[in-house]
Design a protein around this nucleic acid. Structure first.
Lengths: 187, 187
DNA sequence: TCTCCTATTGACCAAGCGGTCAACAGGCCG
DNA sequence: CGGCCTGTTGACCGCTTGGTCAATAGGAGA
């Protein structure tokens, strides 16, 4: 439900309706809607992270992983999750449980990206002084681009190109190497 | 009101209360709350843009402008505007008038940043093949970092550092030149 | 079979929302 | 002075939200 209509559609009555259950029963089990929203956020984003991690795991090398990461996160197939993120940043100001969950999941995402970068640096594929900073940079840019896409601003293809260029610069790669990797992976 | 409590606090009754006026009068004048919200967004963001443009205008050179831009946008004094942006991205999916306004203002922001970059390239201070793309990159990163800050994730000082490094790389500047410029501007 | 206990329900409450409408006030013009 | 017209109001409507509570149904165990 949150994926289709956003986090704010996670309401007693909507949940109850979906489960063919009385609204009071939802309230009876969850204690507070804020908690349920926080749990919902954490479940969605946790699943997304696991899914992407598994996807990256299946890839042969760090270069392909970074290319795959960008392609997956900016490909447009995850606008539903983006909406959840954006609403969580906003709602997190009123819902402390949600804010906690958001911070936790952001830590997880940054760690995932940093691991890929670390691996690439170790294999001498990437050149990067500050993997944690680079991971943060990429995460911020991806989040920003995705947020922009929510109101259909910016051409999707251009977004991926921009992100690849940024990643190449960040990781000391030759210009175009990520684009070629993505091409090879797709074709 | 939107700056203090977010766009979703812009409601008939709240506006009426603030203006010491009957709620019906608000409805009488604005036609629809969606429109009022869109106008509010446009006013807030338009003012912000004018303000920042004036600030940059007063600066001596493109290098100082980019440094000032980053300092201003990530300094933490604009979390209220960030909240408005984030809520607009989300609400723009249901409110087409708002979505239009958001796209318009994003165009304006990108144009502002691109102009600064163009100017720097012309003066041979920056080295950049794709000013429009670089402007977009910076905008996405700033938006992403600011969104993160809404739930108090990421140390503010580290954000500015990260953004400066990114800008230096994007614009062909020596590492640390923006930090020094900011320092000089502040002191 | 009867009891008890848990899961579940319906009926509420107070609050909030956008929007509509007839009624009213007060100033301006004839 | 009387009438009109614009600006303004209060009282609504229907709908939504989160949350509470007494009452009920139904199965497990004595």
């Amino acid at each position: 439900m949150a994926l289709e209509e956003g986090l704010q559609s996670v309401t007693q009555r909507a949940v109850a309706g979906q489960a063919s259950i009385a609204p009071a029963l939802v309230a009876h089990y969850v204690g507070s809607m804020d908690e349920l929203v926080a749990e919902t956020f954490e479940a969605i984003v946790g699943d997304e992270l696991d899914e992407v991690a598994a996807l990256l795991e299946a890839m042969p090398d760090p270069l392909a992983r970074i290319a795959g990461l960008i392609e997956t996160l900016l490909g447009g197939s995850r606008h539903d999750v983006t909406l959840v993120w954006v609403q969580a940043w906003s709602a997190g100001r009123r819902n402390e449980a949600l804010a906690d969950a958001v911070r936790r999941q952001m830590d997880n995402w940054q760690a995932l990206i940093r691991d890929v970068i670390d691996e690439g640096v170790e294999a001498s594929v990437f050149r990067c002084d500050d993997p944690a900073g680079a991971a943060w940079h990429l995460l911020a840019m991806v989040d920003g681009l995705n947020a922009h896409a929510l109101v259909r601003w910016g051409a999707p293809a251009a977004q991926e190109t921009a992100a690849r260029r940024a990643a190449e610069a960040l990781l000391g790669l030759d210009a175009g190497s990520l684009a070629r990797t993505a091409e090879a992976g797709t074709g």
